[in-house]
Lab assay of single mutants.
Amino acid sequence: RSTHNEMEKNRRAHLRLCLEKLKGLVPLGPESSRHTTLSLLTKAKLHIKKLE
């Protein structure tokens, strides 16, 4: 059980790190620190579409 908890903790930490990296790559506007994961991913998707 503790192994599972540790793996889950590591998974969440990795996900958080990846989202922070994404936040640095996507133009978010003036309220960049107030975005939810969903809004960050939505803006990333729109940004990628613009680049295509």
Results as ranks from 00 to 15, higher is better:
residue 2 S to Y: 05
residue 2 S to H: 12
residue 2 S to E: 06
residue 2 S to F: 04
residue 2 S to I: 03
residue 4 H to C: 10
residue 4 H to S: 13
residue 4 H to P: 13
residue 5 N to E: 15
residue 5 N to D: 06
residue 7 M to G: 14
residue 7 M to W: 02
residue 8 E to G: 04
residue 8 E to D: 10
residue 8 E to A: 08
residue 8 E to Y: 07
residue 8 E to I: 10
residue 9 K to G: 11
residue 9 K to A: 05
residue 9 K to R: 09
residue 9 K to Y: 06
residue 10 N to V: 08
residue 10 N to G: 11
residue 10 N to I: 03
residue 10 N to S: 10
residue 10 N to Q: 08
residue 11 R to Y: 10
residue 11 R to N: 12
residue 11 R to P: 14
residue 12 R to L: 08
residue 12 R to W: 12
residue 12 R to Q: 04
residue 13 A to N: 10
residue 13 A to Q: 07
residue 13 A to C: 13
residue 14 H to G: 10
residue 14 H to R: 09
residue 14 H to Q: 11
residue 14 H to V: 09
residue 15 L to V: 11
residue 15 L to P: 03
residue 15 L to M: 03
residue 17 L to N: 04
residue 17 L to K: 10
residue 17 L to M: 09
residue 17 L to T: 08
residue 18 C to Y: 05
residue 18 C to Q: 01
residue 18 C to E: 00
residue 18 C to T: 02
residue 18 C to V: 13
residue 19 L to H: 00
residue 19 L to R: 01
residue 20 E to N: 06
residue 21 K to A: 03
residue 21 K to L: 01
residue 21 K to R: 09
residue 22 L to S: 00
residue 22 L to F: 04
residue 22 L to V: 05
residue 22 L to G: 00
residue 23 K to A: 07
residue 24 G to T: 09
residue 24 G to I: 06
residue 24 G to P: 04
residue 24 G to M: 13
residue 24 G to D: 06
residue 24 G to F: 10
residue 25 L to Q: 03
residue 25 L to V: 04
residue 25 L to N: 00
residue 26 V to T: 05
residue 26 V to H: 04
residue 27 P to L: 14
residue 27 P to D: 08
residue 27 P to T: 14
residue 27 P to M: 13
residue 28 L to P: 06
residue 28 L to W: 15
residue 29 G to K: 09
residue 29 G to A: 10
residue 29 G to E: 03
residue 29 G to L: 11
residue 29 G to M: 10
residue 30 P to Y: 11
residue 30 P to M: 11
residue 30 P to G: 13
residue 30 P to W: 15
residue 30 P to A: 14
residue 30 P to N: 14
residue 30 P to F: 15
residue 32 S to L: 13
residue 32 S to G: 12
residue 32 S to D: 04
residue 32 S to P: 11
residue 33 S to A: 15
residue 33 S to M: 15
residue 33 S to C: 14
residue 33 S to L: 15
residue 34 R to D: 02
residue 34 R to E: 01
residue 34 R to H: 01
residue 34 R to Q: 12
residue 35 H to T: 11
residue 35 H to V: 09
residue 36 T to H: 09
residue 36 T to Q: 12
residue 36 T to R: 12
residue 36 T to K: 14
residue 37 T to F: 15
residue 37 T to W: 14
residue 37 T to G: 12
residue 38 L to I: 11
residue 38 L to S: 10
residue 39 S to Y: 01
residue 40 L to W: 14
residue 40 L to Q: 01
residue 40 L to N: 02
residue 40 L to I: 13
residue 41 L to D: 01
residue 42 T to K: 14
residue 42 T to P: 02
residue 43 K to S: 04
residue 44 A to L: 08
residue 44 A to M: 09
residue 45 K to M: 01
residue 45 K to F: 02
residue 45 K to V: 02
residue 45 K to H: 06
residue 45 K to G: 05
residue 46 L to T: 10
residue 46 L to K: 15
residue 46 L to M: 10
residue 46 L to F: 08
residue 47 H to W: 13
residue 47 H to A: 15
residue 47 H to Y: 15
residue 48 I to L: 13
residue 48 I to C: 04
residue 49 K to V: 01
residue 50 K to N: 05
residue 50 K to P: 04
residue 50 K to D: 00
residue 50 K to S: 03
residue 50 K to F: 09
residue 50 K to H: 04
residue 51 L to T: 04
residue 51 L to C: 02
residue 51 L to S: 06
residue 51 L to F: 05
residue 52 E to M: 03
residue 52 E to I: 11
residue 52 E to W: 14
residue 52 E to T: 14
residue 52 E to F: 12
residue 52 E to A: 14
